[in-house]
Computed example of a mutant assay.
Amino acid sequence: MSVTETPAATRDDADQLDAKTQRTAVRERYGRIAAESGSCCDDTASCCGETAAEDTQVSTQHGYSADDLAAVAGDANLNLGCGNPTAIASLDAGDTVLDLGSGGGFDCFLAAREVGPDGHVVGVDMTPEMVETARDNVAANDASNVEFRLGEIEHLPVADASVDVVISNCVVNLSPDKPQVFREAYRVLRPGGRVAISDVVLTADLPTDLRTDPESVAACVAGAATISALESMLTEAGFVHVTIEPKADSDEFIREWDDALDLSEYIVAATIEAERPEAGA
């Protein structure tokens, strides 16, 4: 499938929700998901299957292997993503990794396997219930090199130049201030560090009722930005070697996100990669 951004794939600020409403909708949705025994399914969205086999199929569509799924215990895998950022992160032993919007911690635990005991993984999430769930999963996975912090991805509770790789899985689209997210990612990365993000991107203008619907924002739809907009945000934050690649087969699971509308006509999953320049570059 080829992905072309049409001129309509732009945003009118008057048609967007204010930041407070967006954050409230996101926090409430994911707090509810964390509280409901790790189920991401509700009456308005179908982001996972009704059986274990269907859940596994969704995870496979996102890019996880059977080994990945078997490696993590507890309620860490909530099937809330749209890709597998650890697969594109090229992690090395000893790396420090930061996961933006870490949810139940699934990608953090996968990253922890790659960085080993000398590495460190930090997950940041703004939903207290998700942080509590993720911390419970630390014990279930005996992951002493993983920790979770409560915070917003626009204001990371992480020191300057302390991270080698920033990952994220279908979370940046939820932010009402994406340029600030990328500025924060740049701040916490060491020179030469990189971002490896799985997210959705906008390919055609959404209907107005979706753009202004809090649930649509919280469901990883209405907050998506175009590829060109994301490229500009990353470049303006200081990143180089920016690459955004749509996933041609993501329509298979995006179609399942809404019973009434084929959302694959408007958004597509993509990998987003960029680097902070080396010192002196």
Rank of each mutant, 00 (worst) to 15 (best):
K247S: 13
I267R: 00
A270E: 02
A229P: 01
K247Q: 13
I227G: 10
M233F: 15
I267G: 01
S264R: 04
D258G: 13
A222Q: 04
R276P: 05
M233I: 08
E256L: 15
R255C: 14
E236W: 12
S264C: 01
E236S: 06
R255D: 14
A237G: 04
H241K: 12
D262L: 08
T235L: 00
L261Q: 10
L261C: 10
I227C: 04
G223D: 05
E275K: 12
D258F: 07
L234D: 02
I227R: 00
A229V: 04
T235W: 01
A248L: 13
P246L: 08
L230I: 12
T226N: 03
P246I: 09
A222L: 06
E252A: 15
A248T: 04
V240Y: 08
M233V: 05
W257F: 10
P246F: 04
H241A: 09
A248Y: 10
D249T: 09
E245R: 12
R276N: 06
T243Q: 08
M233R: 13
F239P: 05
M233Y: 15
A274I: 07
G223T: 06
A225L: 08
G238K: 06
V242T: 05
A260Q: 13
D249E: 11
D251P: 04
R255Y: 12
M233W: 15
W257N: 14
E236A: 07
A229F: 03
F239R: 08
G238Q: 03
A225C: 08
E245W: 07
E256C: 14
K247V: 14
Y266P: 10
E273S: 14
C220Q: 08
S250W: 00
T271G: 02
F253N: 09
E273V: 13
E236I: 05
A237V: 09
A224E: 06
G238N: 03
T235K: 01
